[in-house]
Design a protein around this nucleic acid. Structure first.
Lengths: 161, 161
DNA sequence: GACGAAAGTGTAATAGAATAACGTCTCTCC
DNA sequence: GGAGAGACGTTATTCTATTACACTTTCGTC
């Protein structure tokens, strides 16, 4: 076993946030799309931690903390944009959203989610994709999208019960 | 490529249904739990096709067709029971439920879902689980549950656009 | 057969997640 | 500066799921 992933061990998280925002700025300007104040703020909130965040949690912060008049569509439109740009992923089994580690590379995330600390660990280019494609080949199935969400206990939470 | 799976080619589906119900009877009596009329009916509805079915679709049939006075908890309780017994699976990405092919073996399903005909093809003991466990080992992650849902086009729907 | 506990179902209300439809505003480009 | 597209505000609604409590059925035991 290698060193545990960043998401589930202490680290300077403000660095994660600022890096994610900087990457987003770059990516959007390269793509010629607009990272508006709202979208940027939603991305920042999603990156507040490595734990998937619900749309209505985001909504609550925008309303109560930012004092913005926000309704569900406000949040979902921003999230749709971020999803399209590959800046966040949606966790179907949690109805929640989490920042993407590697927005530069087109991909669909594979996640290991700790049921205790709620950290979502995103895998990069794992062998899982390969075995999914292998199975698909056998079935003659053309893969267009995949949802891989594994729940359990992360290394940290196993150590400290 | 082998012959396409049952779920996405024509077949005598009434046989699927009756077999699923018979297996359910067996399994429940072995487990000492009760497959009541309601639970049996919900299982039958879920097996009406190989396409995942929403809880509210089931509710509509119970109300309108069966003339039963049913509310959401009625359906969800039956579904919870069937999930616990491993008789159905939940498809998180669709908020829907589908019958399990192999209720005799404890497992969590891996699904290939056709976006056109909506068939859900369940894999049995694929290499996907292995590669998930491999990745988990590397992370020191203890796997407790997994959601694997691949969307795309099944062999049939690729052939006939 | 009567009884009590446990399991199952009915019922009403509510919480949580997401979208539809339409109006207004603000950029950007000509 | 005007037209058009994109972004955001607003209201209402749909879809999914759960809580809490009442009533009924089933099953084992006396």
């Amino acid at each position: 076993m290698t060193t545990p992933p960043l998401a589930c061990r202490p680290h300077d998280h403000s660095h994660c946030i600022s890096q994610a925002l900087a990457e987003a700025e770059n990516l959007c300007s390269r793509q010629g799309v607009r990272l508006t104040a709202l979208r940027r703020r939603v991305l920042e909130l999603v990156w507040q931690s490595h734990r998937p965040l619900g749309a209505y949690d985001i909504l609550a912060v925008l309303s109560e903390q930012d004092g913005r008049r926000a309704a569900p569509p406000t949040v979902y439109r921003a999230l749709d944009f971020l999803l399209e740009q590959g800046l966040v992923h949606r966790i179907a089994s949690l109805n929640a959203f989490v920042g993407c580690n590697r927005p530069d590379r087109a991909h669909q995330g594979q996640f290991f989610i700790c049921r205790q600390c709620h950290a979502a660990i995103e895998l990069e280019g794992s062998a899982i994709s390969e075995s999914i494609l292998d199975s698909a080949r056998e079935l003659g199935f053309r893969v267009e999208g995949q949802t891989v969400e594994v729940v359990g206990l992360c290394a940290n939470c196993q150590a400290a019960p």
